[in-house]
Lab assay of single mutants.
Amino acid sequence: GNIFIKNLHPDIDNKALYDTFSVFGDILSSKIATDENGKSKGFGFVHFEEEGAAKEAIDALNGMLLNGQEIYVAP
């Protein structure tokens, strides 16, 4: 299952995104959108192997604080 994450703190990188979401299941890919200079655009995507893991991550993390910013997590 794919999920979309927005309002990410600029310091959150691909590894931090992966580490945050990997507790919910096996991740096939995770990516933070960046500009041409490699600076985070504040949103990203995680693709879980299983749909159930994606739903669990959405339920658990939507509205949670990550590096002091409330993140939005949705399908």
Rank of each mutant, 00 (worst) to 15 (best):
G1S: 07
N2A: 01
N2E: 00
I3Y: 01
I5A: 07
I5N: 02
I5L: 13
K6C: 03
N7A: 14
N7Y: 08
N7Q: 09
H9M: 06
H9E: 08
P10F: 14
P10T: 15
D11F: 13
D11C: 12
D11I: 09
I12K: 02
I12A: 04
D13F: 04
N14S: 10
N14V: 08
K15W: 07
L17W: 01
L17V: 09
Y18F: 13
Y18A: 10
T20H: 05
T20I: 06
F21G: 08
F21R: 02
S22V: 09
V23I: 15
V23K: 05
F24G: 01
F24A: 02
G25I: 00
D26A: 12
D26R: 07
I27F: 01
I27D: 00
L28K: 06
S30D: 03
S30C: 11
K31V: 04
I32G: 01
I32K: 04
D35H: 13
D35Q: 10
E36S: 09
E36I: 14
E36V: 14
G38R: 14
K41R: 14
K41H: 05
K41I: 04
G42E: 09
F43V: 03
F43I: 03
F43H: 08
F43P: 00
G44A: 14
F45R: 00
F45H: 06
V46S: 04
V46A: 10
V46G: 04
H47V: 01
E49P: 06
E49V: 12
E49Q: 13
E49K: 14
E49I: 11
E51R: 13
G52N: 12
A53L: 10
A53Y: 11
A54P: 04
A54Y: 07
E56S: 07
E56Q: 10
A57N: 01
A57P: 02
A57I: 08
D59C: 09
A60C: 12
A60T: 14
A60L: 09
L61C: 10
N62P: 04
N62V: 08
G63C: 08
G63D: 07
M64K: 07
M64T: 07
M64A: 07
M64R: 06
L65A: 15
L65K: 08
L66W: 06
N67T: 13
G68S: 14
G68L: 12
G68T: 08
Q69V: 12
Q69A: 15
Q69N: 15
E70K: 15
E70D: 12
I71T: 09
I71L: 15
I71Y: 03
V73A: 15
A74G: 15
A74D: 03
A74T: 08
P75T: 13
P75N: 14
